[in-house]
Every structure is written in structure tokens, then in C-alpha cells.
Design a protein around this nucleic acid. Structure first.
Lengths: 199, 199
DNA sequence: ATCTTTGTACTGACTGGTCAGTTTAAAGAG
DNA sequence: CTCTTTAAACTGACCAGTCAGTACAAAGAT
């Protein structure tokens, strides 16, 4: 099964279709939510026949699962790439900026994440998110604790979730309310809130 | 007649009915989301006929709007009550704790908020949330800025959203993953993240 | 006291529409 | 030939909203 997918992927056609369907689905689900988005609408926006969606993804749920997995992996990669800096706290700043930038580019996915990731149906995707994207934050915070940059007894998992949720919320509000404000200003506010530079 | 008497005994007034429907709706929508929750299911869980829901709330949307407004007002009141402390930063801590406690008690509403508040359909509710609940955070932060407790040029609106989103995310994760951990530990982690006590 | 009316709350069977998923026949591409 | 896509019709389940009717308390009316 995997072999066949890889082979056909190299051929190009199938991958294009999947990409188009992905993009259409993300946009529509971001606008209306998963349950309120119809497969007919996705197919229409993707410029593809309805049957093609089922041929490629099996079901609406299968499509969304593939979508989540793909997007979460992209997000995790972006955060991981941003994880650089002299100190661990510098790295934290960079990862926050990386997350802001990612959601600046993939705002629809930000809304999908916020709206859908808590549903028990997508438990698998949540687990992936936790170990990949949230894992990057946890790793940075653990390093900071080891270096004595933050209190060693800080609850790393909770803190990682806190920072992630904070940035996610702000990124969505940014796009909705202040789309023209420079990203750096938003980033500076978060950094000030985050460690001591607040006063 | 026996049947009549039983009915009379079971019969409640309008407030009771609305209350029952409210509770059922919050629970179900928290579990499955607005779009995936059927009025039939709400009526069944409330122990009420389907028609009663429409009689009392006009439409599924009307029910949800009433629900959002009521819950947001309760949240805003809780945050407002928690807004006390010697310094503005102490007040910030208290409000964070107030929000954690509120969502500890109304966890279902926390998930509803996270999942639904960004949809354009509920724009009115979002506006209410912004001016009431988020307004409490903004007010605290403005006071802190005026007192020189934080940098005067901090972007108050963004910071308010950031803190609110942070606490909301953490509160949901807490209930899902660490329901038995003392609330104070979660609160301490957030406070450390929030101002300088991090190191 | 007993009957009649009125307003309010509630009921549940029913309707009209929507939507995921299927089927089919045909066609394009490697 | 096999894989992929298309268009269009179709099925069957599901669901928001409706409506005719019931239950009953309170307020006259006789």
C-alpha cells in the first residue's frame, strides 16, 4: 500500500490532486468548521470531482485526518527549525517567532487547530501535536531549566502548552483584528510577557 | 386521573426547563461541537420534548446565542471579582487564578469557547467576550503600565488576549490530562511564566 | 360550587431538505 | 492494461424546524 502510494506520488498527478483538495479543505473548514463543511463544497473549490475526494481519501474523516497529520508535521518542522539561539531562552523567543510566522502563512490551519483539535475524534492528531510541536517547546524549556535560565522545578509540560496556546490565540486575533501590524511588535509583546523583560 | 397527577408533579416552570436545556446543550456541544450536536440529542438529555427547545429558544442558533451570552457574563463576573491585589501585577495573578477556577468548574464551557468563539456567526458573542472578560485583563495591564509595574509601551490588547488564551488552553489540558493535580501548581507555573519570577 | 374561557408551557409525529457515500459509464495518462 | 479522474444520478440516513393538539392553572361567569 505504501509502496504503491510512493510510486504514484512520483508520477505527480495524484499528489497534485491531493494538494488541491487539502488546500480547499483547510480553507473551508477554517471558515465553517469540520462538521459544517460538505465534501461537495470541498470538491467544488478544489476544482475536482466529488468522487475523486473519496477515491483519494476514502472518507471525509480520512481526508481530515490526512490533513491534520500533514499540517501538524509542517508546523513541527517549522518550530524545530526555529529552535536556535545562544541561550535556551533566546531559543524560546525564536520558536515563538517561528510559530507566529507559521500561522501568519497558514492562518486557516491555525483556526482549524484551535477549533477542532480538542475533539476526541482526532485523538491521534492531538497525540502527534503533543509529541512534535509541543515537544519543541518542552525541549527548549527543559534545556533552559538545566542551564539554570529558569527555575528547575517549572512544570515543563504545562508551560509548553501555555506558550503554545498563547501564541496560537494571539496569532488568530492578529489576523482577524490587526492584519497590518508588524509581526515583530506582536512578537515583542509576547517576549516581554514571557520572561522578565516585562519590567 | 393518575396520568394527570404524575404530569402535574413532573411539570416545572419555564425557568426550570430553560435551565435543563442549557445544561444539556453545554455538555453536548462541549463534547461534539455546535454543528455536530442535534437538537434531538439536547432535548433527550434535558428530558424534554424537541418542540420545547424551539418553544423556548426559537432556533438552535437562538439557544446557542443565549447560552454563550449567559456563560460569557458569568465568566466576566468571575474575572472581575478576582481583580484584587496590592499591586496591579498581584491583581493579574488573581485574575489568572480566577479564570483557572472558573474553567475548573465550567470545563464544558471552556471547550465550547475554544472551539466556537472564532466563528463569524457568533460575532456578537465575541464582541461581548472582548469587552467583558478580555476587558478585565486589559484593565489590569493598563493599571500596571500606569504604575510602572510593566513597560508603559506594552501592547495591552494583544497581551490581554495572550494571557486569556494561555490560561484557557492550559485549563483545558489540565482537565483532560492532569485532573488531579492541584490547581495551585498550574497557577504557579503560569505566574512564573508571566512576570519575571521565571528565573 | 360548577362551567367556560384564556394564556402558557409543552408534546411528538411529520416534513422538506441536506449530505456522506455509492454507482456507473466513460475517458485520459503512463 | 492499470491507475486515476470525471460527471451525474442516486440512496438512505439524519436533522432543523413546524404544527395540531394536550395539559393545566387562573380568571371570570352563572
Amino acid at each position: 500500500m505504501t509502496e504503491r502510494n510512493e510510486r504514484t506520488a512520483r508520477r505527480g498527478n495524484r499528489q497534485d490532486t491531493r494538494q488541491k483538495v487539502f488546500r480547499a479543505a483547510v480553507e473551508l473548514i477554517a471558515e465553517h468548521g469540520y462538521a459544517a463543511t460538505t465534501v461537495d463544497a470541498i470538491a467544488e473549490r478544489a476544482g475536482v470531482a466529488k468522487g475523486t475526494v473519496f477515491y483519494n481519501f476514502g472518507s471525509k474523516e480520512g481526508l481530515f485526518e490526512a490533513l491534520l497529520e500533514h499540517s501538524i508535521n509542517m508546523l513541527a518542522e517549522a518550530l524545530s527549525d526555529a529552535d536556535t539561539g545562544k541561550s535556551a531562552l533566546d531559543a524560546l523567543d525564536s520558536v515563538v517567532l517561528g510559530q507566529l510566522r507559521f500561522f501568519e502563512e497558514h492562518g486557516a490551519f491555525a483556526r482549524v487547530l484551535l477549533a477542532e483539535m480538542w475533539r476526541t475524534v482526532w485523538q491521534e492528531a492531538v497525540a502527534l501535536l503533543r509529541q512534535s510541536a509541543l515537544g519543541v517547546y518542552a525541549s527548549v524549556l527543559r534545556r533552559a531549566a538545566a542551564n539554570g535560565e529558569i527555575r528547575a522545578d517549572l512544570d515543563v509540560e504545562t508551560a509548553a502548552t501555555a506558550v503554545f496556546g498563547m501564541v496560537l490565540t494571539v496569532a488568530i486575533e492578529r489576523r482577524a483584528l490587526y492584519p497590518d501590524r508588524p509581526l515583530e511588535r506582536t512578537h515583542a509583546t509576547l517576549v516581554e510577557l514571557l520572561h522578565g523583560r516585562i519590567n
